[in-house]
Design a protein around this nucleic acid. Structure first.
Lengths: 345, 345
DNA sequence: CCGGTTCATCAAACCGGTTTTACCGTGAAC
DNA sequence: GTTCACGGTAAAACCGGTTTGATGAACCGG
C-alpha cells in the first residue's frame, strides 16, 4: 500500500478532499469542528501531502534553483560556495522551499539545466558568476524564469540584482600598501570576463594608475603560481601582489618562498575571499572577507520577494571587510631589491 | 500565454497527446513519419515537458536529496562537502536528475526535511554524517524512502552503504610517527558519536594501545585550539597530535606555535581530509586525503542503482591516501622536553 | 478468404493535489 | 414571512503529463 492521499484523509474525516485542502490552506472558512476532525484523521493516517501533486496543481515547485557551471575541481577549493549556499538555505528553510542544485559543464548543458528549472523544477533561480556580457540574462528572460543576479550587471535587464562593492576594498588595500611604501603593486586577477573579477581589476588599475602589473589568472592555484613566477621574473619586480582569491595568493606566496623570498619582508601578499584557513597561515594572509553567507541570504530573500510579486530591485550588500594580517605587514622592501635572477641562477 | 503544453504539440502535429508521449518515451511504437511530425511541432513550439506534471504522473521526481544538519558555520569551513557534491552531480548530470539540498538545524527540522523528500521532492536520499546509532535509519525505513548511507553502519539495516576505510590511514600515520621516534601520540577526534570519527578514534586507540591522549573535539577550529592547549599542558605532553580534520589541526598548530613550539621539531601535527590549502602551509600539513569527489560519485551511482531496482549493496571505496608532509617530518623531540609551563609563565 | 496478430493511434482514466462553482442551511434584515 | 447574505461543504473542473484499454488497418499463415 502506498502513502495515504488526500482522498483517504477526506474519507476518514467524512468530508471531500476540497474541504481537506481548504482546511489546510485557509482559503475558505472551515468550521472548527470539521477542521479538528480533518487534522485528527490526517494525523492518524500520517498523511503528508504529495509535493508533486501540489506542485502541479499550484503551478509552483516551492523550490529555487542554482546552476553552477564551474569546473568541479575549482568548486572543491572554493571558499565562497558552501557559505553562500548556507546563506541561501538559511532563508529558504523557514519557507519550506527547497534548493535545487545543478552542476554543469558547457553551454549546452547549462542551457538544458536552466530549461529544466523553467520547466517546473524551480520557481526561480539565483545566477552566480555573472559575466560582463552574459548570455544567461536574455536567455532567462526568454524562459520567463524569475532570477536574481549576483553581481552588478550593467547592461539593461529587468532582474533583481544583489551587488557587492568590490572596488572599495581593493582601493583600501592599495592605499594600505602605498602607506607601507610599496610602489610596485601587482594584481593577479580572475578571468576578466567575470563582472566581479573585472570590478576588482578595474579598481586596481584605477588605484595604481595602470595595468602594467596586471595579470589575468583563473582562480586556480596553478595560475597563481605561474603568474607570480612571471611577475617576479620582471626586471623591476613588484614588491606586493594582490590576488583575486586566496587560493592563488597562497600558491603565489608559496612559490615566492620557494624562490627564497620572505613574506612580507621581500614580498607583500594579499588575497580575496578570506578562506577559513587564511588567518592560520604563517604569516597570516591579508584578505578581503566578503561574507558570502550574508550575500546568499540577501539573494534568497530578494528572490522570494520577486516570487511574491514585488517589483525587481537592485540591492547592494555592504559586506566586505579588509582583514589586514601579517602577509602585508611591515615596510616595503627597498625599491630595487636584489634581482631575483641572482638568487635563482 | 503560458508555456506550450503537450496538448498544444499534439494539436499542432495532428495527433493526441498520448501519441506525443509515446513518441518520446518509446513505450509504444510510433511510425517514423508521425514521430517526425511530432518532433517538428515540438521544436517549433519550443515545448519543454513540464517536470511537475511528469513527476506526478510518473510517480518519480527525477531528483535525489541530501539533507545536511550541519551548522552553517561548520559547513563553510568544510573541505568535504563541495567536493562530495561535485562527485554526486557528476553522476546525476548525465541522467537529467536534479539534486535537492536541504540544510537544517535540529531534529524536528531534519525530520520535516526528510518527510518533504519522501513526499515526492526526491526519489531517494544520500545520508551523510552517520551516527553510530542513527535515528534516521529506522526513520527512513518507515518513510520507505530509498537511501544510501555514507559510512559503515553496523546495526542491521537494509540500505545500501558506501564505506571508506578510515582505520588504515590512521594506523599508517601512527606507524609513521612511531618510526620517527614518537611515543606520546595524541588524537583530537571529531564527535565520537559519528561513525567516521569513532572509526578513526578506535583505530588510534588500538594503534597506540590506550585512550589516555584521546580528546573529543567537534571539528571546529575552536575545539582544536582548546584541546591542543589541554594536551600541551599535560605533565608528560604528547610530541605528536593527530587531528580528525585539517581545520582543527591548523588551529592546533597555530596555537602550539604561539606558545613557542616549532612544528614539526617540537610537535608533529597531522590532519585529516586534506584541505586544498594544507599543502601550501608552512610547514605543509600532513593529512589524509579521502577523495570526497569519488565518494560522492560512488554514492550517487549506488543510489541510482537502488532506484533502478537493483538490490541494496554495500560498497567500499578505497580512496584514502596518506599525504606525508613537513608537519610530521624529522625525528621526534626528546622524550621529556622542556615543560611548557616554563616557557609560558 | 478468413481468423488471428501486429502495428499505430485514439480516447479515457489516472496521478494527487488546488481552485472554482454550486448548493444548502441559518440567521439577520425588511 | 419572504429575502438576502454568508458560512460551510460538496461536486467537478483543472494542472499537464503517463499509462492502459480499445479500435481499426495492414499483414500473414492455413
Amino acid at each position: 500500500m502506498g502513502r495515504p492521499t488526500i482522498d483517504d484523509v477526506a474519507r476518514a474525516a467524512g468530508v471531500t478532499k476540497a474541504t481537506v485542502s481548504h482546511a489546510y490552506s485557509g482559503k475558505r472558512p472551515i468550521s472548527a469542528t470539521t477542521k479538528a476532525r480533518i487534522f485528527a484523521a490526517a494525523e492518524r493516517l500520517d498523511w503528508v501531502p504529495s509535493s508533486r501533486a501540489r506542485a502541479l496543481a499550484a503551478r509552483r515547485a516551492n523550490a529555487v534553483g542554482v546552476v553552477l557551471s564551474r569546473d568541479p575541481a575549482i568548486l572543491a577549493s572554493d571558499a565562497f560556495f558552501p557559505a553562500f549556499i548556507s546563506g541561501v538555505e538559511s532563508v529558504l528553510a523557514g519557507h519550506e522551499i527547497a534548493l535545487v542544485l545543478q552542476m554543469v559543464t558547457g553551454r549546452t548543458a547549462e542551457e538544458r539545466a536552466y530549461r529544466a528549472m523553467a520547466s517546473g523544477r524551480a520557481d526561480g533561480v539565483i545566477v552566480l558568476d555573472l559575466h560582463r556580457v552574459d548570455w544567461r540574462v536574455p536567455y532567462l528572460r526568454d524562459l520567463r524564469l524569475p532570477a536574481v543576479l549576483l553581481g552588478a550587471y550593467d547592461a539593461e535587464n529587468s532582474f533583481s540584482t544583489v551587488r557587492t562593492d568590490d572596488a572599495t576594498p581593493v582601493r583600501e588595500l592599495v592605499a594600505h600598501l602605498r602607506a607601507l611604501g610599496h610602489t610596485r603593486i601587482a594584481h593577479v586577477s580572475g578571468p576578466l570576463d567575470y563582472v566581479h573579477s573585472h570590478a576588482r581589476a578595474a579598481a586596481y588599475v584605477e588605484s595604481v594608475g595602470g595595468d602594467e602589473l596586471l595579470r589575468e589568472g583563473d582562480f586556480t592555484a596553478g595560475s597563481g603560481r605561474a603568474l607570480t613566477a612571471e611577475l617576479l621574473g620582471l626586471p623591476d619586480r613588484p614588491t606586493a601582489v594582490l590576488y583575486a582569491n586566496d587560493t592563488m595568493a597562497i600558491a603565489g606566496y608559496s612559490y615566492a618562498r620557494s624562490r627564497g623570498l620572505e613574506v612580507p619582508a621581500d614580498l607583500a601578499v594579499a588575497g580575496f575571499d578570506d578562506d577559513h584557513l587564511s588567518a592560520h597561515l604563517s604569516p597570516a594572509l591579508t584578505s578581503v572577507s566578503s561574507d558570502p553567507f550574508r550575500r546568499g541570504k540577501v539573494a534568497a530573500e530578494r528572490l522570494l520577494a520577486d516570487l511574491a510579486g514585488e517589483p525587481a530591485e537592485s540591492v547592494t550588500v555592504d559586506c566586505t571587510v579588509l582583514r589586514l594580517r601579517a602577509s602585508t605587514a611591515g615596510p616595503a622592501p627597498e625599491a630595487h631589491p636584489t634581482p631575483l635572477e641572482e638568487e635563482l641562477s
